[in-house]
Nucleic acid binder design. Structure first.
Lengths: 215, 215
DNA sequence: CAAATTATATTGACACCGTCAACATATTGC
DNA sequence: GCAATATGTTGACGGTGTCAATATAATTTG
């Protein structure tokens, strides 16, 4: 209770200060530690050390919390997916860039499986919420940009290209997360890593000894 | 509802007769009518007209009910996906057959979105349950068979082929179900149907006037 | 500076959920 | 007919989201 200097010291103050951010942090912890199923309003409040109804003031309801958390996810997603060559626009090979972007897509899903499912699973998400709306739209715009269709309008060929690339990596990520990909890798003569299979799948014949798996 | 001549008259009998099947039927109704989120043990029992704890005798817990329901889904899935040319083995063109199988995959997802998500979403499913185990294994075997890799063991090329085709259609189905595909179709100059886009995506240049949509 | 107002957090209640134990009833085997 | 078993019901528990009522902090206002 030694509150001094700063406006509030937290710890034991009735008011928490910036609770919204703290709740999102707490939700992220719960999501990563206990999984998407256990991510509840009350668990989040518990993790943040506040009462069970405190989140209502900041998120209205569960959908609000999940949506804002998904928005955070899309921001990270954007930062990680956007090819470094996109900012500087110094691409060596457009096809190679697309492969790299697809690889990052799957890596993100592998490293953040619960967050990934939260972001792309429709249920309990409100895409009209400003935070989620802007972040997700930026993500989708980035995807179309990555396939070469920079314009806002897509012709038939461009749409097919985007849908093709997106479906491929998204399906791979989902099958991988849900464990169904094992039904393939387990039947292989010489089992290989998830990411190695992805490289073989994306690369055509990019690299032969794709035995690396830097998670 | 006027069942007679049968062993029990239902309606008001304490024992229900074949409750397990009736519960699965009820669960299917709830799933289709109220969605996967609302599919609960109690809602199923309510729909079947029995007490809230009745399902426990037949399914142990919620996982049991969902798993058995998913098993039913995989059986229907198998019946619908397996190409008619597979039994008779009278395929015109293997590539054409694969396209047709992929199309059926997406059509199944479109017609049974909640069931599809139940089947392929890992959470709350127990794949070691005999019913689900056999049905799902049959489904996965059918998929590998469809891509030409009939053997139980997959070489590198075969595995890549299966993973490629599966990821493509699975991703498309998921993006379609979750509504994210709209971000593509809405940006198209001339908007087209989900299935038309799929045809263009799968077919390469199979058919030009793919405007049919027999749902 | 004190009072009024607003913002924020707590408490308690409600209906729903899955799950379990205790009980009641029907079916089956002897 | 009676015991044993299978099946269904009832009631309880702790968990959940959500809401209304309350309490407290922060801010504005006079």
């Amino acid at each position: 209770m030694n509150t001094r200097s700063q406006p509030i010291d937290r710890e034991k103050s009735y008011h928490h200060g910036a609770l919204k951010g703290a709740l999102l942090d707490a939700a992220e912890i719960v999501l990563r530690r206990d999984g998407l199923e256990k991510l509840t309003l009350r668990a989040t409040a518990r993790e943040a050390g506040v009462s069970h109804a405190a989140p209502k003031n900041h998120f209205d309801n569960l959908t609000g919390l999940l949506s804002d958390l998904a928005a955070r996810g899309f921001e990270r997603f954007n930062a990680e997916i956007a090819s470094p060559g996109e900012a500087g626009d110094t691409q060596i090979d457009p096809k190679q860039g697309l492969r790299e972007q697809g690889r990052r897509y799957v890596v993100f899903a592998k490293n953040n499986p619960d967050l990934f499912q939260l972001m792309f699973r429709n249920t309990r998400l409100d895409y009209t919420r400003s935070a989620l709306k802007t972040a997700s739209e930026a993500a989708f715009a980035g995807l179309t940009h990555g396939t070469g269709s920079a314009s806002n309008k897509l012709d038939r060929e461009g749409a097919v290209g985007v849908a093709f690339a997106w479906s491929l990596v998204h399906g791979y990520a989902m099958l991988m997360i849900d464990g169904q990909l094992n039904t393939i890798t387990k039947r292989m003569i010489d089992e290989i890593d998830d990411m190695a299979l992805l490289d073989a799948l994306l690369g055509g014949a990019s690299d032969q000894n794709t035995k690396k798996g830097p998670d």
